[in-house]
C-alpha cells in the first residue's frame, strides 16, 4: 500500500512538474521536490521498519507539565 501511495504521489507530482516547467516556475518545483522528497524518505524509512519517534509523544512529554499544572489548579 505504501508503494502504491508513493507511485501515485510521484506520478502526480511528475505530471504537475510538466506544467510547472512550461510555466517556468522553477521556484515552485524546488519547494515541491524538497517536500516530496522528505515525504518519500519518511515512507522509505517506514518500509524499512526504522523506528521513528512519535510526534505526539514528543509534544506530550514537552507539554505534560503545563497540563498537570492547570489540572492541579482546577481540582
Amino acid at each position: 500500500m505504501t508503494i502504491v501511495a508513493m507511485i501515485v504521489a510521484l506520478s502526480g507530482a511528475l505530471l504537475e512538474y510538466r506544467r510547472l516547467v512550461q510555466n517556468k516556475s522553477y521556484r515552485d518545483i524546488i519547494m515541491s521536490v524538497c517536500l516530496l522528497a522528505s515525504g518519500l524518505l519518511l515512507g522509505i524509512l517506514q518500509m524499512l521498519k526504522v523506528k521513528l519517534p512519535s510526534l505526539m509523544g514528543g509534544i506530550t512529554t514537552a507539554f505534560e507539565p503545563f497540563s498537570k499544572m492547570v489540572e492541579s489548579w482546577f481540582s
Binding site: M1, V4, I7, V8, S11, G12, L15, R18, R19
Partner: peptide, 21 residues
C-alpha cells in the same frame, strides 16, 4: 493538461480499486 490531471484522479481510483482488493 487538464486531461492529464483528471486521468490522474482516475488512476488513483483505479489503483485503489484493483491493486489491494
Amino acid at each position: 493538461m487538464k486531461l492529464y490531471r483528471h486521468s490522474f484522479v482516475i488512476l488513483v481510483l483505479v489503483m485503489t480499486l484493483i491493486l489491494p482488493g
